[in-house]
């Protein structure tokens, strides 16, 4: 029975691995970049399958929530905001020599590291002990927030700083486009000239009014006298 379970797990692993590698290749090589972004999102979901096989369900959930739900959606929004990103002439470096070097270097990284992964005696490097596959989310939360809560807060601070930097970058571009920023809360707040100039014009009007009254009063008195 245990042999059947391990064989089933191996088949599951090979299936997920094949799908993930094919989807990763399609995400890099598909002509339409929108489809490439979708393939990346599906690939991230299948990577969560590895985490489930490794009995890390919380990490699998986080992978789906952040990568599939967040990052792939962000990339798709980026593609929509950048219509020139869909230009298929940008797909590879023009120089064939540079392209060949890139393929050679990345291929050698892949080949050497895969051979290393398969040939290296990993089991000897891992200390002896029972494999604790039954992971508890509560234990992980206690470890993360109890003993190492300060580090989590620091990481959160760094991420908030990055996001504030993102907003600042966007606002800087807009600020460069605006020449005159006026108003009470503007970046370069300055008084509006139209509001200041009418003040001296308004003041003579009340002075003129008494003069007209003065001139009209004797006329009225003359009329009465007549």
């Amino acid at each position: 029975m245990q042999g059947f379970e391990s064989a089933f797990e191996s088949v599951e692993f090979l299936l997920i691995a094949g799908i993930v590698i094919v989807l990763a290749y399609l995400a890099l090589e598909h002509k339409e970049i929108v489809y490439a972004a979708f393939f990346f999102g599906i690939m991230a979901s299948f990577v969560a399958g590895f985490f489930l096989l490794l009995e890390a369900p919380f990490v699998a959930g986080m992978q789906i929530a952040v990568y599939t739900g967040g990052i792939s959606a962000l990339i798709i929004f980026g593609v929509l905001l950048l219509p020139r990103a869909q230009d298929s002439t940008l797909e590879a470096i023009e120089s064939p020599r540079a392209k060949k070097i890139g393929i050679l270097v990345s291929g050698s990284i892949m080949f050497i590291s895969a051979i290393l992964a398969l040939r290296f005696p990993w089991s000897e490097t891992i200390p002896e002990g029972t494999i604790d596959a039954s992971l508890d989310v509560a234990l992980l939360a206690e470890w993360l927030w109890g003993d190492h809560g300060v580090y989590v807060q620091i990481v959160a601070l760094i991420m908030v700083t990055a996001l504030v930097g993102v907003i600042a970058l966007m606002k800087m571009d807009k600020a460069e486009l605006m020449k005159d920023i006026t108003g009470e809360f503007g970046i370069e707040a300055r008084p509006v000239p139209e509001e200041i100039e009418p003040e001296p014009e308004e003041s003579p009007e009340p002075e003129e009014a008494p003069e007209s009254e003065k001139t009209s009063e004797p006329e009225a008195s003359e009329e009465v006298a007549d």
Binding site: A24, G78, L90, E91, G102, I103, S106, M110, L118
Partner: peptide, 24 residues
């Protein structure tokens, strides 16, 4: 697992070195 991980790392390196499109 490590073999799959390294294949993915190699594919990502290929994308970063060969492609010109920033989104790729």
């Amino acid at each position: 697992y490590l073999a799959v991980a390294f294949i993915l790392i190699g594919l990502g390196a290929y994308g970063m070195m060969v492609k010109r499109n920033l989104i790729r």
